[in-house]
Amino acid sequence: MRAAVLPPLEDRGGPAQPLLTVGGLVKHFPVKGGVFGPRRAVQAVDGVDFSVLKGETLGVVGESGCGKSTTARLLVRLMAPDAGTVIFDGESVGDALSLRDYRRQVQMVFQDSYASLNPRLTIEDSIAFGPRVHGVAARAATGRAHDLLARVGLEPRRFAGRYPHELSGGQRQRVNIARALALEPRLVILDEAVSALDKSVEAQVLNLLLDLKRDFGLTYIFISHDLNVVRFMADRVMVMYLGRVAEIGARDAVFDAPAHPYTAALLASMPKADPAERRDAPPLSGDPPNPIDPPPGCRFNPRCAFVEDVCRRTDPPLAALVPQHSAACLMASSGSGHSRAPEIAA
């Protein structure tokens, strides 16, 4: 007997327990070298720890190759991590919590709205697919798909029977959002979900995401290269660089008083939209380095304006400056040997 609805998901650990706790996440991709060459690996994610609180939006920023998308894919287990633990509301994923039950609670929206929909399914079938796999009767699943379409601003009578190619990019992304919500997840990972949209459409979809978060009590991980969008959406922000966390903290703390020189440079690189504020020199020179050969010591040291010898030797730990604001920089860690590091309190 197929169910008419999905069983409701319960909050287990209460509001104070993080929804998601990630520890020591590692993913290396081996690269083919020559026959006698050294065996090398792209260190896409190399020891990442963070947690996501219930009901918040964690913004993740960084440049290409920083590991933000790999982190997202590891979190929804589109690939298996080499090492690390993921704890969802107190239960270890793949252990106490089965992957099937975990995946119902964590859904993802991708950047490419077209590639992430099956071109041969109507959009109502795409949205109903997940619930049906999880045992909901066909009729009930389709009814829910129609409700969700209406909820994301697509009138079901006009849109339910259409195919992805008949929709605009903004409409397709609304479908992807509806599909992500079909399983009533608690955590939604948005990986550059608005980056391919035109600016006037982007604003509409961001407003929709805020409404849905409030109405369904969702938690978001919002990944974007666009700092302005992250500043608008996020409660806390995590900055990644070459597979590591460079800085993490409350949004205003990170944006107004960045503790890592990379965060500061990234913020300073944003176009100002004011011709009176044009700069003469770029905040950083060079490209983000290749994650195959990260430099020894601090990974940012070759591009850093404050680099000292100690930075080339010592891998900076992610150290708390104040509670809830941490940075992986020797200048922020007392007694590190960097001339700008704070004194050790006597």
């Binding site: 700092l227 440079a265 990234l266 690189s269 176009p271 905040p283 950083l284």
Partner: peptide, 11 residues
Amino acid sequence: LDATVQIQILL
């Protein structure tokens, strides 16, 4: 391009 590279190319 990435943000830190974009500004270099614009300048």
